[in-house]
């Protein structure tokens, strides 16, 4: 177990290093001098040089990479080219919207998908099953930003139950803040819930056809008892994988949904930074999201290894 853990940890570290190099090099290709961009065309040569020094733009490629990556390790993401504030601060503020939004959507998705998937599987071929499969088929096909717009039309513009966008801030109280995240979270959760419900259903159906379920039934357990006591637990492994993967889709998907609802989260920050050519911010946000994805996948792998010893040998 320890050996497996160390091996996976090494591969995690390696992935992070390679990812950071890829991101760094990709944005290094961008033409133009950020210092010249910040100071405008009339800037004096010595002012430019001083700013370049301050931003850490001098030095070789390797020195700059080491400065950027080393800084990130102790929470220093550099200084924004446009706002002249530390990038870490800007990201920290935005994270307080994007992260709760992704988690909210993940909870919604799980809470909807589990009962729907279990219900459909336990009544295979019934009306319930057909309805769940039909609705999830639509849920997978609908573009979530369009669904978000439709919800704005119905619940914000016509019924006036929610505001059409913006974020009241956590200072306004937990409930009000959550209320302004509700429509975005539902929009984000819909496709994920549909996928999850389908995975739950098919995984449960696979498990229900296994020998140990037949044994349990032969022992005298009812269909319902066999499902809840034996099948469900065994059917959860693929479901957990998908939940792990979904977290990254939710964080990244939030980038588009935040734009629909004008939420000042990481997504808006990225777009503002792209249009302002504030590449250090883009670089840092992308790295942060990739870091989150890699770490979450690592955590899911570890959780399996603990739950299911058979999986330790694989890979």
């Amino acid at each position: 177990m320890l050996r497996y853990f160390l091996k996976r940890l090494l591969s995690l570290a390696l992935s992070l290093v390679v990812a950071s190099i890829v991101i760094f090099l990709a944005l290094e290709v961008v033409p133009g001098d950020p210092a010249a961009y910040m100071l405008g065309i009339n800037a004096q040569e010595d002012t430019l040089a001083a700013l370049r020094e301050q931003l850490g733009l001098n030095g070789s490629l390797i020195e700059r990479y080491a400065g950027w990556a080393g800084g990130m390790l102790h929470g220093d993401f550099g200084i924004s080219y446009t706002y002249r504030t530390p990038v870490a601060e800007m990201i920290g503020e935005r994270l307080w919207i994007s992260l709760p939004l992704a988690l909210f959507a993940l909870c919604l998705s799980t809470v909807i998908a589990f009962p729907a998937g279990i219900w459909a599987a336990s009544k295979r071929g019934s009306v319930v099953d057909v309805v769940v499969m039909g609705v999830t088929q639509l849920g997978v096909a609908i573009p979530n930003f369009w669904f978000a717009m439709l919800m704005v039309l119905v619940f914000a513009i016509n019924l006036r139950w929610f505001s059409a966008g913006g974020f009241v801030g956590w200072d306004a109280g937990f409930l009000l803040a959550m209320k302004s995240l509700t429509l975005p979270a539902v929009a984000l959760a819909l496709p994920q819930a549909s996928i999850l419900a389908r995975v739950m259903r098919s995984s449960l159906l696979d498990t229900l056809s296994e020998d140990f379920i037949r044994t349990a039934r032969a022992k005298g357990l009812s269909k319902r008892q066999a499902l809840w006591r034996h099948a469900l637990r065994n059917a959860l492994i693929p479901v957990l994988t998908i939940i792990g993967l979904q977290f990254s889709f939710l964080l990244a998907g939030a980038i588009i949904i935040e734009n629909v609802f004008f939420l000042p989260g990481l997504g808006r920050l990225v777009f503002q930074s792209i249009s302002a050519r504030d590449l250090i911010v883009v670089e840092s946000v992308v790295m942060l999201l990739v870091f989150a994805v890699i770490v979450v996948n690592f955590a899911v792998d570890m959780a399996y290894a603990i739950v299911d010893p058979r999986l330790r040998g694989r890979r």
């Binding site: 992935s15 390679v18 990812a19 890829v22 991101i23 990709a26 944005l27 290709v29 961008v30 990254s248 889709f249 964080l251 990244a252 998907g253 980038i255 588009i256 990225v270 792209i274 590449l279 883009v282 992308v286 999201l289 990739v290 994805v293 890699i294 996948n297």
Partner: peptide, 19 residues
């Protein structure tokens, strides 16, 4: 492959657009 999977497709697109 694992490495590319760690970048959600939207992030790849954002990076390419930024560049």
């Amino acid at each position: 492959n694992d490495l590319i999977f760690a970048f959600p497709s939207l992030l790849i697109a954002i990076m390419i657009t930024a560049v």
